[in-house]
Simulated assay, not measured.
Amino acid sequence: MKSTQLNIYQRILDELTENILKGVDRKLKTYFDKYKPSKKDEDELLTVDETLKILKCSKQALWNWRKNGILPSYRLGNRVYYKKSDIFSKLIKQE
C-alpha cells in the first residue's frame, strides 16, 4: 500500500514540476520577446553607463567580463562601447 502511495505522490510532484517549468519558460519567452531589440537597434552602441543599466551590475563586474572576453567591447578613442545585440545574445545564450 505504501509503495503505491509513494508512486502516486511522485507522479503528482513530477507533474507539478513540469507545469511550473512550463510556466516559467512561457514568462521568460514573453519577457525576452518584449525587450528583444529590433533590427535597427541591434547594432546600436551603448556607453558603459547604458550597459550598466541594462545588466544591473557593477562597473567592476562589467570590466571583468570585458577583460575575460565574456562580453565583447568596442573602443572609439578613449571610450568603451558595447553592442546591444551582444548584450542580449549573452543574456539569452548564457555561454
Rank of each mutant, 00 (worst) to 15 (best):
R11N: 08
I54M: 02
L52W: 06
Q5C: 09
E95Q: 15
I20S: 02
T51R: 03
I70M: 01
D25Q: 15
I12H: 09
K34A: 08
T17D: 11
G77A: 04
N7H: 05
K53E: 14
F88G: 01
T17H: 10
L71T: 01
L91F: 03
Q5W: 11
K39R: 12
P37R: 08
L13I: 12
I8L: 13
L55I: 02
Y35A: 07
S89L: 07
K90A: 08
K53H: 04
E95D: 15
W65H: 03
L91C: 07
K53L: 09
I8R: 11
K29M: 00
K56T: 11
S89W: 01
K39S: 12
L52D: 04
K40I: 15
L91V: 02
L16I: 13
Y31S: 05
K53R: 13
K67G: 00
K83T: 07
S73M: 05
K39M: 07
E50Y: 04
Y74E: 09
I8T: 10
K90M: 10
K27W: 08
K40D: 12
E50H: 05
D86N: 07
K83V: 09
P37L: 05
K22M: 03
K29G: 00
K36H: 13
Y35V: 15
L16E: 13
E95Y: 11
I20V: 13
G23F: 02
Q5Y: 14
I12F: 10
E15Y: 07
N78S: 14
K67F: 00
S58P: 02
R11Y: 00
I12E: 12
R79C: 03
D41M: 11
K39N: 14
Q94V: 14
L55Q: 02
K2G: 13
L13R: 11
F88P: 01
